[in-house]
Amino acid sequence: MNFKKLSEQYKTELLENVLPFWLEKSLDREHGGYFTCLDREGKVFDTDKFIWLQAREVYMFSSLYNKIEKNQAWLDAADHGAAFLLERGHDGNFNWYFSLDVEGNPLTEPYNIFSYTFATIAFGQLNLATGNQLYADVAMKTFDIIRSKVDNPKGKWNKAVPGSRALKNFALPMILCNLALEIEHLLPKSLLDQLIEDCLHEVLEVFYRPELGGIIIENVCLDGELSDTFDGRVVNPGHAIEAMWFIMDLGVRLQREDLIQKAVNITLNMLEYGWDKKYGGIFYFMDRSGHPPQQLEWDQKLWWVHMETLISLIKGYQLTGSQECLVWFEKVHNYTWAHFKDVEYPEWYGYLNRQGEVLLSLKGGKWKGCFHVPRALYQCWRTLEDIAQKDLIVHVV
Rank of each mutant, 00 (worst) to 15 (best):
N2F: 09
K11R: 15
L15G: 11
P20Q: 09
W22V: 02
Y34R: 03
T36Y: 10
F45Y: 15
K49T: 01
G81P: 06
Y97E: 03
E103I: 12
G104V: 11
G104E: 08
N105L: 14
F118G: 04
T120A: 12
L128K: 03
A136M: 12
D137I: 06
V138F: 06
F143T: 11
S148I: 12
W157G: 06
N158D: 15
A166W: 13
A171H: 02
L186K: 00
E197Q: 15
V203I: 15
V206R: 04
V206I: 15
I216Q: 11
D228V: 11
D258N: 06
L259W: 00
V264N: 09
V264K: 01
I266T: 05
W275E: 07
D276Q: 07
G281M: 01
H291Q: 13
Q294Y: 12
D299G: 11
H306F: 13
T309I: 03
I311P: 00
G316T: 03
T320P: 03
S322M: 03
Q323P: 02
H333D: 12
H333F: 10
H333N: 06
H333G: 04
W337F: 12
A338G: 04
A338V: 03
V343I: 09
P346A: 04
W348P: 04
W348T: 08
L360Q: 13
G364V: 04
W367M: 13
C380N: 15
L384Q: 02
V397L: 05
